[in-house]
Amino acid sequence: MEREQIDLDTQDVGRGSVIRYGHWGRPVLVFPSEAGRAWDFENNGMLEGIADLIEGGRVKLYCVDSMDHLTWSDNSLPTEERARRHGGYEHWVLDTVVSLIDSDSPGHRGIVTVGASMGGYHAVNFALKRPDLFPVGISLSGNFDPSSWHGWGEMGEATYFANPTAYVSGMEGEHLDWVRSRANVLLVAGQGAFEVHPTRSLPGAQRMAEILASKGIPHELDLWGHDSAHDWPWWRKQLAHHLPRFC
């Protein structure tokens, strides 16, 4: 399997790594679990479930660092400051990573975002904010309300626009029509260990689905069984089950 690691500098959040897997196919931007690194998908066996897609030239994966340790995972910072720093991460992805993908996969038909746990938040957040770039967002056990992540301090505009449960609820008019016409969100969650406590991934997915439904934004909620845990072996099965239909 073709593999290449690229380190990209950014003024806001430091140097981040991108690892590309594959030689051809639809680009898939992959976010790891909380505070994870670009190699986490490989190290946790996620590539095994979709090896046929990669080797068959149906997808090219671009796995990125999360940089959560500088943003959402730094509980010493008030939530608004974490959100402000997260904005720097968004700029890195949009300005630097997307440019890399566009030059490496010219003529593609839109980038699919995928993420597990907090990575699921990133995948859906980018798909809802920029569906022109990311028309498909796939979350595996994500939670979409950053204000609930050990939040403290006064929360303002930065937190609002980093919180899909807030800004999607506030969408209306032409902007909502624009999102409706482009976005396609898949929310996957299990009903087993750690999907409710402490991650709140199951209720988080259900709540996000309700908000998307209220706004008429195309989406799907796929709930797995009570044996499906908040862990890599289940995310591997879920990704292998769903990704082929988007590629």
Rank of each mutant, 00 (worst) to 15 (best):
P32N: 02
L53R: 03
R130S: 11
G88F: 08
E195W: 04
S148L: 15
L61Q: 05
G151V: 15
S117N: 09
L140R: 05
G16Y: 06
A189D: 02
T10V: 06
Y167I: 07
Y160R: 13
P244L: 04
Y89T: 10
P131C: 10
A213V: 01
A127N: 15
G156W: 14
F246I: 03
H108D: 06
N163W: 06
Q238D: 04
G137E: 00
L53A: 11
L243Q: 01
W24G: 11
Y89Q: 00
A116V: 14
V64H: 08
S169C: 01
V97W: 01
V98P: 01
Y160W: 14
S139T: 06
W178M: 13
W39S: 15
Y121S: 02
V185D: 01
D9C: 08
R58A: 13
L186A: 09
H241W: 12
G137L: 02
E195F: 06
P146Q: 01
G156L: 11
E48F: 06
Y121H: 05
V98S: 04
V196G: 05
G115Q: 10
G142E: 00
L47T: 01
A183H: 00
Y160L: 15
S73L: 12
L61P: 03
N43S: 13
A38N: 12
G137S: 05
W24Q: 15
D40L: 09
S147P: 02
L223V: 14
E2Y: 14
N75C: 07
G115A: 02
M118I: 12
S17Y: 01
I111S: 10
S105E: 03
Q238I: 04
W149H: 12
G192C: 05
R207V: 10
E48L: 09
G190N: 03
L140T: 07
G36M: 02
S201I: 06
P218H: 05
D222C: 12
F161A: 01
L70S: 11
E55F: 06
H230I: 03
L221P: 00
W235R: 09
V196Q: 08
L61N: 03
V28A: 08
P78E: 01
H175M: 11
T159N: 07
E157K: 13
T199D: 03
D104F: 03
M1N: 11
I50S: 03
V112K: 05
E210K: 13
H175A: 10
L61M: 04
K129M: 07
R3C: 05
I19G: 12
L53N: 08
S139P: 09
G190Y: 10
L239C: 01
R84N: 00
W72K: 11
A193W: 11
G56C: 05
P32H: 03
V18Y: 12
E172T: 15
Y160K: 13
G119F: 10
P78V: 14
T159G: 01
G14V: 07
D74N: 11
R37W: 06
E172P: 00
D177W: 01
V114S: 00
L140Y: 11
S105R: 04
R26E: 08
A123L: 08
D52S: 15
R82H: 07
